[in-house]
């Protein structure tokens, strides 16, 4: 298979607002065939970033959302029965290796450790993928890249990534963008005016102070975009904030009410 698709121009790529120097860092990881670990809270742009980078580098992207029941076969592939005969079907990881694509394992700590070990030989300098079931041994082409992400909050208490696994990756930390950038992102993504987006971003900044103390999760950029989208479609600001920000963040009525009061202090009573 030839992998010669040219690098794309930035205007045709899906929109990603760079926060630091992550684009250059990722590119250089790809050129040097290093696997990458993205750390950061949910909804801060990790998935979008990978998508953007895959397009930019002209690679196909295979994304796997990890969960507890994910097995090694789900990643590598399995034999299937059809029409009286059995045949082998590649899993997304195998396919990505064959095609020199980027394989993105989202929320990798959600998967059981024994499912994840299959990626180990791909993360050191051997860059191989043994497929026990078929006896095949794949050598990953230079274009192949493994990217994993996880949310290092300790609410998962005993989950989390083994230090030894972590050390196989080059890692990049993500967080919610700073206020001005976040406002731009919200305005672009939801198609609302910048003033409204700024208010929402400022509100989020305050709510984020409550992380760990009062809230398990922070108000993500994604939630702000939802709120902005609702407002744009004619829902009142306070209803939109309740539905897209306050309620998703907490099931505790008192906390939800407090968040609504914070919203009122920022945006006024409707």
């Amino acid at each position: 298979m030839s992998n010669t698709s040219p690098l794309k121009h930035s205007d045709s790529l899906s929109y990603y607002q760079q926060q630091n120097n992550e684009v250059a860092l990722f590119e250089s990881a790809w050129h040097n065939q290093l696997p990458v670990l993205l750390k950061g809270p949910t909804g801060c742009g990790k998935t979008r970033f990978v998508q953007h980078m895959a397009e930019k580098l002209g690679r196909k992207l295979y994304t796997v959302a990890c969960h507890e029941d994910l097995t090694a076969s789900d990643l590598i592939g399995r034999h299937l029965i059809g029409d009286g005969e059995t045949y082998w079907q590649d899993g997304p990881l195998t396919r990505a290796v064959r095609e020199g694509a980027i394989c993105y394992l989202d929320e990798v700590v959600e998967a059981r450790k024994d499912s994840i070990v299959v990626m180990h030989p791909l993360t050191d300098d051997r860059r191989i993928l043994p497929i026990d079931r078929t006896g095949e041994l794949l050598n990953a082409p230079p274009e192949f890249m493994l990217v994993v992400s996880y949310n290092p909050g300790y609410q998962n208490l005993l989950k989390g990534m083994k230090p030894s696994t972590k050390q196989r990756f080059m890692s990049m930390s993500f967080d919610y963008p700073e206020r001005e950038l976040e406002a731009e992102i919200v305005a672009k993504e939801a198609g609302v005016d910048l003033e409204l987006a700024k208010l929402l971003a400022r509100l989020a900044g305050h709510i984020r102070q409550l992380k760990d103390h009062d809230l398990e999760e922070s108000a993500s950029t994604r939630l702000l975009i939802y709120a902005a989208t609702l407002i744009k479609s004619g829902i009142s600001i306070s209803e939109a904030c309740r539905a897209a920000i306050a309620e998703p963040l907490s099931d505790d009525i008192e906390v939800v009410e407090a968040l609504m009061q914070v919203m009122n202090a920022q945006l006024g009573d409707d």
Binding site: H206, Q209, L210, D214, E254, V255, E257, A258, V262, A265
Partner: peptide
């Protein structure tokens, strides 16, 4: 509790 959360959210 609402006031406590409000207090912290405002800084």
């Amino acid at each position: 509790k609402r006031l406590a959360v409000y207090f912290r959210a405002l800084g």
